[in-house]
C-alpha cells in the first residue's frame, strides 16, 4: 500500500481545479450534443489501482460497459492515462443524438470521438491551471460489448501505481446518459502534482 496521499487542503485545491476543468468539458459536450449537461460536484480520491476493477465491477453490476483510454504527457513528469467508462445501455441515446448508424464500428467511432472531446478538453483545462501543457496519445478502445471490462481495466491499471479516481458524472438534462472518468497516474507524477498544488495554495 502506498504512503502517497493528499492533505485536506491539497484535496480541496485539486477538486476545485477538477471542477473548473469539468465545467469546460461539459460546455464542450453540451455544444457537441446540442443539449445541456447537469454538473455535479466532482468527487476525487486517490486509490490503489488494484482496487479499481472491483470498485467499478460493483458499480456497473450486470451492465455492459465500454472503456476508452487516452494517454497524456505533460511537463515536469506529469503524465498518466485517462479512462472513460460508458454504460452501453446509454450509447443508443448518444448515437441518436449524433446521428451515427447503429453498427459496431460506428459505435466505436462515436465513443472515441466523444472521449477525445471530453478528455482533451478536461485535461487541457487542468493543465492550464497547473501552468502545464499536455500532449496526447490517440484514444483506444480497451473493451467492447463482448469483453469483460473489469479484466481489461485490471490489465491496464496494473501498469500504474495509483489512480486518481475522479467521479465525474456527465448527466444530460434532456436525456439519460452518464459516464465516469478515471485518471491513472504513476507515483512520481502524484508527487509532482502535490508540489504544484502546494504552489497554488501558497499563492492564495
Amino acid at each position: 500500500m502506498t504512503a502517497l496521499h493528499f492533505t485536506e487542503e491539497q484535496r480541496d485545491c485539486l477538486q476545485e481545479l477538477v471542477n473548473v476543468a469539468m465545467g469546460q468539458a461539459s460546455d464542450k459536450l453540451a455544444r457537441y450534443l446540442a443539449t445541456m449537461v447537469h454538473l455535479q460536484v466532482p468527487a476525487i480520491k486517490l486509490v490503489d489501482t488494484q482496487q479499481l476493477p472491483q470498485h467499478f465491477a460493483q458499480r456497473y453490476q450486470q451492465q455492459s460497459v465500454s472503456l476508452i483510454s487516452m494517454g497524456f504527457f505533460g511537463d515536469q513528469g506529469l503524465r498518466g492515462e485517462a479512462i472513460m467508462l460508458y454504460q452501453l445501455a446509454n450509447v443508443d441515446v448518444l448515437a441518436r443524438l449524433l446521428e451515427y448508424s447503429d453498427d459496431d464500428s460506428s459505435e466505436a467511432e462515436m465513443l472515441t470521438d466523444i472521449s477525445s472531446v471530453l478528455t482533451t478538453t478536461f485535461l487541457n483545462g487542468l493543465a492550464e491551471q497547473l501552468d502545464n501543457s499536455f500532449s496526447y496519445a490517440a484514444p483506444r478502445i480497451l473493451s467492447s460489448r463482448d469483453q469483460h471490462f473489469a479484466d481489461k481495466l485490471a490489465a491496464t491499471a496494473q501498469q500504474w501505481q495509483l489512480a486518481l479516481q475522479v467521479d465525474i458524472r456527465y448527466q444530460l438534462t434532456d436525456y439519460s446518459f452518464h459516464c465516469d472518468m478515471i485518471l491513472l497516474i504513476p507515483g512520481e507524477a502524484v508527487l509532482r502534482l502535490r508540489q504544484m498544488l502546494d504552489q497554488i495554495l501558497a499563492s492564495f
Binding site: 471542477n19 473548473v20 476543468a21 469539468m22 465545467g23 469546460q24 461539459s26 460546455d27 453540451a30 445541456m36 449537461v37 454538473l39
Partner: peptide, 9 residues
C-alpha cells in the same frame, strides 16, 4: 462565479 459556463446556465 462558476465553472458551469454553458450558455443555457
Amino acid at each position: 462565479v462558476s465553472a458551469d459556463i454553458q450558455p443555457q446556465m
